[in-house]
């Protein structure tokens, strides 16, 4: 008996096993090398050793990456968010309408031009936060499935974006607003968001609660976690990050359109799932999602590099998403068998 307790005391301090993200990283390396080899064979040039291609690739995925970070914590909590793309559209419109320059005669709010950049950003973020909180409140307090609640928000927010200017685009932002989308700034914003969320999920009570609710909501309630309140927070944060992505998209395009961000929600979910975030909740990490995002980017830019038709790209994207979910189900099965 004594030996058992000694063992327990002794093993408690041992290190974690190899992180599960390692597998996904290997997949990324495999795909990259495949493109590299195909590049030399078909194009006679390197795929990877091209800084310009790589920076464009990262830039392309980092906006959706911001959303994917928010979606990651939603999926870990056992939910799903279909409204991200529409929130991007709605917040892009609203933020841009408060970011126009005074010299543009047909500004949406002629009295409210040349505002400091903090105003459109803050308004956009608050709108996203509210949209997300509504999602969360619907899910937590009316007990409707996340799929339905966020589907409702997806349609409503898109409708709002169209109604806001009766379908007209909004353009001519101030220089300081436009700077948010210039060059590699979106990548920088993504990195900051990713680092913060990584720390939050790993080291804070917010993160612990999120994993607990995803792993077993009932058990979470019995251990004293206010599951409803925390659910609202999780979706509000997801909404906030979608809004941030919306602001960046508008700034980068120097214009906002009601249709912005369409299908972003699916790409974001795909990045998370490819990155090993389990749709059954409780498993996954920001690091995984980041790798998933890069895999996503590599595949898109790889096919462009190989001059493959855009239609093939889209079809293949669908296959990859399904493959990632199949991999998740397979991992799940293996676990069940072992137990």
């Amino acid at each position: 008996m004594n030996t058992i307790s000694q063992q327990a005391a002794a093993v408690a301090t041992t290190k974690r096993k190899l992180p599960s993200e390692l597998n996904i990283l290997l997949v990324l390396i495999g795909i990259s090398l495949t493109f590299e080899i195909l590049g030399w064979i078909l194009q006679g040039q390197s795929f990877l050793l091209n800084p310009q291609r790589l920076s464009i690739m990262i830039l392309q995925v980092s906006v959706i990456g911001i959303i994917a970070i928010g979606v990651t914590q939603v999926i870990i909590s056992g939910g799903i968010d279909l409204s991200s793309g529409s929130i991007v559209g709605a917040t892009a419109m609203i933020a841009m309408s408060f970011a126009q320059i005074g010299t543009f005669e047909r500004a949406l709010y002629p009295g409210l031009t040349d505002l400091p950049v903090i105003v459109p950003v803050a308004i956009g973020l608050i709108v996203g936060l509210i949209c997300g909180a509504i999602n969360g409140a619907l899910i937590a307090y009316t007990r409707i499935p996340p799929f339905i609640a966020t589907l409702g928000m997806m349609v409503t927010a898109r409708g709002f974006a169209k109604w806001y200017t009766k379908g007209q685009p909004i353009s001519f932002p101030t220089d300081s607003f436009a700077a948010l989308g210039k060059g590699m700034t979106p990548v920088l914003i993504f990195l900051v968001v990713a680092v913060i969320m990584h720390v939050v999920l790993r080291y804070t009570r917010y993160g612990k609660f999120t994993y607990a609710i995803g792993a077993n909501a009932h058990a979470a309630r019995v251990t004293g976690i206010d599951v409803e309140r925390h659910t609202v927070k999780i979706y509000a944060v997801a909404g906030l990050l979608s809004a941030l992505a919306g602001i960046v998209v508008a700034a980068r395009g120097l214009t906002a359109q009601a249709g912005m961000g369409q299908m972003y929600e699916l790409d974001a979910i795909a990045m998370a799932v490819i990155g090993g975030v389990s749709l059954s909740g409780g498993r996954g990490s920001v690091l995984g999602t980041c790798i998933g995002m890069v895999i996503f980017g590599v595949i898109i830019s790889g096919f462009t590099f190989l001059r493959l038709d855009a239609y093939y790209q889209e079809m293949l994207k669908g296959l990859i998403i399904v493959a990632a979910v199949v991999a998740d189900v397979y991992r799940q099965k293996k676990r069940v068998k072992k137990a």
Partner: peptide, 22 residues
């Protein structure tokens, strides 16, 4: 299984989950 454990999480998270709410 239904209302006790967080099966997907590790031992540490399972043990500390009640304490960190307080």
């Amino acid at each position: 299984k239904e209302t006790g454990c967080f099966l997907a999480l590790d031992c540490l998270e399972n043990i500390q989950s009640a304490l960190i709410t307080r």
